[in-house]
Design a protein around this nucleic acid. Structure first.
Lengths: 256, 256
DNA sequence: CTCAGGTATTGCATTATGTGCAACGCTCAT
DNA sequence: ATGAGCGTTGCACATAATGCAATACCTGAG
């Protein structure tokens, strides 16, 4: 749509691979060096690109700032967080919150097992979309054609023997999840890790986010973990209610 | 430099404040709606902007991916990480790694106390540049005029009674740090938290990064923390040596 | 110290590109 | 139904981005 902006933005993923000098950038963009220079300069002014001491360019700090702010402003996250913490206090395990966005599933919050520290360690990293409980929940809610199209497009890496192997199996699993209103991942991503998850719904009943509890089976068996299902679902429902209830104007409660 | 790109990029910080619709974006950019639309579309195609169900725009997932890749490709970080982990195993406290970039100081790695998981929770958040030990180390190495200019430009928020209050005090502190080759933050940011840090230097002897160990004084007193200084410095030096490749002892300050 | 070879940078004319306008279409609420 | 509000499209115009070629800068070699 906008050629100039398009070119400029194409520089970012290119630099994400590693630092590059002006010539390399120009070449990979297919434009004259002077053009690349001006684009880089504009990116630089906005802090998205940084010029290191050897004159090569790399991605800049503002990028982190933006990503950080973006994640902090997600209102589902803000609403859900206290609930996640409470759940963690009750069961002691790791709690995840995730959303779906354009074919990707993204963790947006995490309460660490026995250690109540927010961390975004996996943000931006591709979630194991074909096996994670939260991914199943989010994709199960897509309209049929979209769901099918996405399922066909995915790769199905066999992380473990219990990973979901292909599109038909995945669609079948999604149907089950959709039906029962909750999901599991029993060693499908890492042999020894199990998860149970439940969906969070907006006013219209559509799934807007998903949460899950994960634990290694050296701590609790899969069966024991399933015991937590009612608790997880209750938490998810509580979040759903609060999310649909108050509308979108965030109410601030004092707490520093 | 490039007006179109400039406008497009100006949208990002705007959206970082929260979702906005087309009209709002157009207004805040001072352009017509059709123009804003095309810019947003281009940003959207690159995944930097996401269109949520109510048609408003927000920052997109690719932003996280880029920030993630960028931080993972920092070679100092890659080299330093195992050293930081080892240090954490030895002392048990939180270990930070930070770099300086255009007047900002940025955490690029962190090993959490007693829990050896990489987390980027504070990446992108403005570090308390006037008090953090790592910030002092990084700024102390700037050439005199630049250092002075930056010091004048900074704000000096009084996080605690022991925060550095103004530019002259800060410059004095930097001189000390430069002199002694290590830095502390004793309750300057949070009343009960102390840090000790040491610089990591490149081949040319310039400071390329800084690391620190932090602990609340309910766990160890400031004096006890200072006991770790030799260990911290040894770790920093080991990283410096590996980073420079050559394996020489890092050059101390001196005349050219 | 000069010189060569490379890269970054600047000024300028040319026109491709982005712009604003106004008309159209859609959705939702009354 | 009806209209208000917002997003979207097509088009004519001129701004603003482009490529070129010439210049400045740096580094390493002679």
């Amino acid at each position: 749509m906008s050629q100039t902006v398009d070119r400029a933005l194409s520089i970012l993923p290119l630099l994400a691979e590693g630092p590059a000098d002006l010539g390399q950038v120009a070449e990979r963009l297919g434009v004259h060096k002077s053009t690349a220079l001006r684009l880089l300069r504009t990116l630089h002014e906005h802090g998205l690109v940084y010029r290191q001491s050897d004159q090569r360019y790399r991605l800049g700090a503002r990028l982190f700032a933006l990503a950080q702010e973006a994640v902090e402003n997600l209102d589902i996250r803000e609403i859900a967080h206290p609930h996640l913490v409470r759940l963690n206090e009750q069961c002691g395990h790791t709690v995840h919150l995730a959303v779906h966005e354009e074919g990707e599933v993204l963790y947006i919050d995490k309460v660490e097992s026995r250690y109540p520290v927010r961390m975004y360690s996996r943000i931006g990293k591709p979630v194991a979309i074909t096996v994670a409980a939260v991914a199943k929940l989010l994709l199960a809610d897509l309209p049929e054609p979209e769901r099918r199209a996405l399922a066909e497009k995915l790769d199905y890496p066999m992380y473990t023997a219990r990973s979901i192997p292909n599109a038909p199996a995945f669609l079948k699993e999604l149907a089950t999840v959709r039906e029962q209103g909750w999901a599991t991942d029993l060693g499908g991503h890492e042999e020894s890790i199990n998860c149970v998850g439940a969906p969070i719904r907006g006013t219209d009943g559509r799934v807007v986010a998903a949460m899950s509890v994960s634990a290694p089976n050296v701590v609790v068996t899969a069966d024991e973990l399933l015991t937590l299902l009612p608790l997880v679902r209750r938490t998810a429902d509580a979040i759903s209610r609060e999310y649909s209830g108050t509308g979108n104007t965030p109410v601030k409660e004092g707490s520093s």
